[in-house]
Write a protein that binds this DNA or RNA. Sequence first.
DNA 1: GAATTTAGGTCAATTATATTGACTTAATTA
DNA 2: TAATTAAGTCAATATAATTGACCTAAATTC
Lengths: 158, 158
Amino acid sequence: MDEHRKAELNQILVLFYLAYRTFTDKPDQILSKYHLQRVHHRILFFVGHFPGLTIQQLLTVLEVSKQALHRPLKQLVELGLIRYTPAIHDKRSRLLTLTDAGQALEQELSGGQRQFLDQIFRTAGEGAEEAWVHIMAALSEKRPAFHFVEDLRRNTDE
Amino acid sequence: MDEHRKAELNQILVLFYLAYRTFTDKPDQILSKYHLQRVHHRILFFVGHFPGLTIQQLLTVLEVSKQALHRPLKQLVELGLIRYTPAIHDKRSRLLTLTDAGQALEQELSGGQRQFLDQIFRTAGEGAEEAWVHIMAALSEKRPAFHFVEDLRRNTDE
DNA sequence: GAATTTAGGTCAATTATATTGACTTAATTA
DNA sequence: TAATTAAGTCAATATAATTGACCTAAATTC
């Protein structure tokens, strides 16, 4: 790889870093109002997107330890943002869903991100969204959690 | 926004999350071998990409407090990965550059990221890189650090 | 020239968080 | 019945960030 291309890719690495930070910035500000952190947003988002997720599944997608998830999840339940619904097939599992308040906060946190992306995709040229998604999927697909989430989605869609 | 589009954008949010995690995963593994963290990679990357960066500028792009930067930067200097070169114009400033060992580690950390991106862009369709960059820039451009980095780049190029 | 500001360095206290390991209960599966 | 699994919790340790204070030396401003 020549120096010019390396410099070009470095600018791209900077963009990736800044874009991700910008992306989590507004939600982080909202979270801090409630004394919550990034991990709380992740929990709310995944439970909102995959209603009925179990704790085990949540641990798998977030790739954190059970002990690390314990406190933030407990807080969200105590705040009345997440509730357990009993699982019929396996009474050991606890199915996670958002309460109305949880849905409202999730919307407050992720809604801006969705609108921001939607607006950028709409103003970008034809096929830009597909290209972006293709590249992000290529970046993700070596990851075990990627396939796990794909399987989750397929099961949820049924 | 209808439910279908919301679900579509949620999948995209998942991709963003997973792509970024995948992206920092290998470097994080390498860092842990040296008992270093993400912030050390960021420092090495930005100093490597902008040789002669001052501490103030580094604080601005990383958006951390002086005290938060202090320890990891000190460690990198003590490990012989980063060196101060005296500033002629302002003797208060300390210009940061990578040592040979620092360049080697930076290459080990970011080189894989650059190659990974380069390969994906090459196998993606025509214009995919431009589209991706356009979108990531749109996501970044509201950020003060984005313009700061743009200015830095212009000054470095001169 | 004196006063102020700026770049950088450091210490201490507090707070937050993650990690490892161990242990428990209840339910399911082999 | 025995072994495994989902979930919950405690404790100890280590890591990290944050706030606030204080310091030196160099540069600017008045």
